[in-house]
């Protein structure tokens, strides 16, 4: 007797045809119009960050007082600031430093946080207790305040900002990684592996890491969004990116003197922050749905039904 009947009766088979794998993660993600828009915006931001300095129509620090405080026009799409600098060029070029700080700081948080969370969740016991109390301590401080204090202590600048943002976002990664590890650790396939005499390194590498990657990827995307915001806030306070290098946050700070006089000075840099953050958030949200196994079967079913 073959398994022919059995295959057709299985409830899962009603959803995902046995012979094919169902649509890939990326295809499922891009099928959602909201995630698609987010991905496109993200792509534009990344491109701007890469080639911004070369395609900017004006130098970021080319001052021309005769052209100061002009509204948006064909020559200056986003207008000019009080020193006659082209706002569009400055917004464009500033994208790189934002993305750079976000990537490096989230990278720090990711590596340290996932490491701590993995060890803590997998080993449990006293190690877990101690590590998690440490994480609790860091988590207790409001994000921006701690970042501010760290930058204050290390001295203002790009490196300090990266370290500070990295530190404040580490606990969230540790918690996400720990929670996922705990649930994966109690999965029967891990227990099965243990009964075979599998070593910890093997289990962590082959079973735990691949299966916690979903939540970690989602958290990475969301943290990138918040890192962009934090960098902007630090730069706004004059503690992040230092002049003459343009940054969105600092541009907003300078714009405050011209509230009601030159709206374009505050609208465009702010919109750039908003769009970048939004794009990371939308993509993170979409990934969260696509990478959640339960939601995934649902989405795949809907995709197949159409």
């Amino acid at each position: 007797m073959t398994d022919a009947i059995e295959t057709r009766q299985d409830p899962a088979d009603d959803v995902v045809p046995v012979a094919e794998r169902g649509p890939g993660t990326l295809r499922l993600l891009l099928r959602n119009p909201v995630s698609l828009v987010g991905s496109v915006v993200l792509l534009v931001v990344v491109l701007a960050a890469l080639v911004g300095p070369w395609i900017a129509p004006y130098g970021v620090n080319d001052t021309d007082v005769s052209r100061a405080l002009q509204g948006p026009s064909g020559a200056h799409w986003f207008g000019t600031d009080d020193l006659g600098r082209d706002v569009f060029s400055r917004v464009l070029v500033a994208s790189r430093v934002s993305v750079e700080v976000a990537l490096v700081s989230v990278g720090i948080a990711l590596v340290v946080g996932v490491g701590v969370g993995l060890v803590s969740g997998y080993l449990g016991g006293i190690t877990d207790g101690v590590l998690m109390r440490v994480v609790d301590v860091v988590f207790a401080f409001p994000v921006l305040l701690l970042a501010l204090a760290i930058v204050a202590v290390l001295g203002p600048g790009l490196t300090s900002a990266m370290i500070a943002i990295g530190v404040v976002y580490t606990p969230i990664f540790a918690r996400v990684a720990r929670a996922s590890t705990l649930s994966v650790r109690s999965e029967p396939y891990v227990q099965a592996s243990r009964t075979m005499g599998t070593g910890n390194t093997y289990v962590v590498w082959h079973h735990v890491l691949p299966n916690i990657s979903g939540p970690v990827i989602v958290q990475t995307s969301l943290s990138l969004a918040f890192a962009i915001l934090s960098e902007a806030a630090l730069s706004f306070l004059g503690l992040g990116v230092q002049p003459p290098r343009p940054s969105w946050g600092r541009m907003l700070f300078d714009a405050q003197d011209f509230v009601g006089v030159a709206w374009w000075l505050s609208v465009f840099p702010g919109a750039a922050i908003l769009l970048t953050t939004l794009a990371f958030n939308l993509v993170g949200d979409g990934l969260g749905q696509v990478l959640d196994p339960k939601r995934r079967t649902q989405l795949a079913a809907q995709a197949g039904g159409r």
């Binding site: 969004a225 714009a255 509230v259 702010g270 908003l274 953050t277």
Partner: peptide
Amino acid sequence: QVGVSVPDFWMGILLITLFSS
């Protein structure tokens, strides 16, 4: 999502522009 992504200080500046200035 938009609300989560808005820099609060920018929102503050915009609100001041509109309601005060």
